[in-house]
Computed example of a mutant assay.
Amino acid sequence: MNHTIKPFTEQTVLITGASRGIGAAIAERFASARLNVIIHYLQSHEAANEVARTCMKYGVKVMTVSADLQSKEQILRMKDKIESHGMLPDILVNNAGISHYGLLSDVSEEDWDRVINVNMKAPFLCTQTFMPAMISQKYGRIINVSSIWGISGASCEVVYSTAKGGMNAFTKALAKELAPSGVTVNAVAPGAVQTDMMSTFDASEQAEIENDIPLGRFALPDEIASLVYFLSLPESSYITGQVISPNGGWLT
C-alpha cells in the first residue's frame, strides 16, 4: 500500500449527473464526510447549484461543471476547468444515465444510440479522461452506477438492460486492468429507487413493483449513496471488480 496517499478528507470526488436523484444524494454524502465535491450536470443549471449550496454547508470545496458526456471534446474541456481549480478527482462516480421504456420492436436507431451513448460511452470517456491521474498517484476509486436490469434484464427495457450489462462487464474488466495501479473499479446496481426515473410508472404499477420486493418498498437515494461512499473508502481497497446490487432482496 502506498502510504503517501492524501488523507481521505483531502480527496476530491467527481459525480456525473449529480443535479438530482441518486447523483445529488451521492454528492451530499461525500460533502458531509468533508470531501471536495465536483457536481456534473448537462442542462439543469439551477438544480446543480441547489445541490452545490447543500454541499457547501459542510464547509468543503464545491464546483459545478456542465458537459455533454457523449462528447470527448466537452469532457476534455470539463477536465481543463476542473484542473484549473486544482480539483482533479481521486474518486470518479459515473452516475449519469437515462432509461428507455418500450418494446424492442418500437425502439428507433436514435433511441438505441442515445441510451447506449449516455449509459456506456460516457463512462468510458470519463474514465479514460480521469484515470491517468489516479494511475500516476497509484490510488483511485472508480464507481459505476449501474442497475439491477444490467444483471437480470427487464422486459420492455432491453436497450437500458443492454447498456447497464455492458457497464457491469466494463467494470469487471477494467478492475483487472487497473488493480496493479492501486485503483479499484466497482459497480453499484440498484433495484427500484425513489427517483424521477420511476415516474414513468403510474401509482398502480409502482405498487405492483413494491409488492415484488421482499422489503416492500423502493430504496431511498441516500441508501444507494451510502454504498457508493463505502466503496470509495481507503479501507475498501480489497474490493474491486464487483457488481453490488442493493435491491431489497428483489434479486438474490
Rank of each mutant, 00 (worst) to 15 (best):
A187L: 12
S71V: 03
E46C: 01
V228C: 10
Q11I: 10
Y101A: 04
H85Q: 15
G165A: 11
G17N: 07
E28Y: 02
R53T: 05
N211I: 00
M1V: 13
A173V: 13
T64A: 01
I116G: 05
T54W: 01
P221Q: 02
L174P: 01
L233Y: 13
A31K: 00
S232D: 02
V145I: 09
R114Y: 11
G97C: 14
K176T: 10
T9Q: 14
Y238E: 15
S152Q: 14
I209F: 02
V115M: 02
F230H: 11
G165V: 09
P234Q: 12
A219R: 04
I22P: 04
S136C: 07
Y238K: 15
G153W: 09
E73V: 02
D196F: 13
A169C: 15
M197A: 14
A31I: 05
P234A: 08
I213K: 06
G182F: 04
L69H: 03
L220K: 08
G248P: 12
K164R: 10
I15H: 03
H85C: 09
A187S: 15
I116E: 06
L104V: 14
I135D: 02
I82W: 00
A175H: 14
Y229I: 09
S181M: 07
A189Y: 10
I148E: 11
A133H: 11
A203R: 15
D106E: 07
K79I: 10
F170K: 14
S146I: 09
C156P: 00
T9S: 05
M134F: 04
H100D: 03
S136H: 09
I213E: 06
C126P: 07
A225S: 13
L35D: 01
K79F: 06
A154Y: 08
W250P: 10
V115S: 00
T252M: 15
D113G: 12
M78C: 01
I135C: 02
I151Q: 13
S44R: 07
I26S: 03
M1G: 15
H40F: 04
M120H: 12
T54P: 04
C55S: 01
I39E: 03
E223H: 07
S84I: 09
E46H: 02
P132C: 01
S161V: 09
V188K: 06
I22R: 06
T184H: 04
S204G: 14
S152K: 15
M1S: 15
S204D: 13
L103M: 12
L92C: 03
C156H: 15
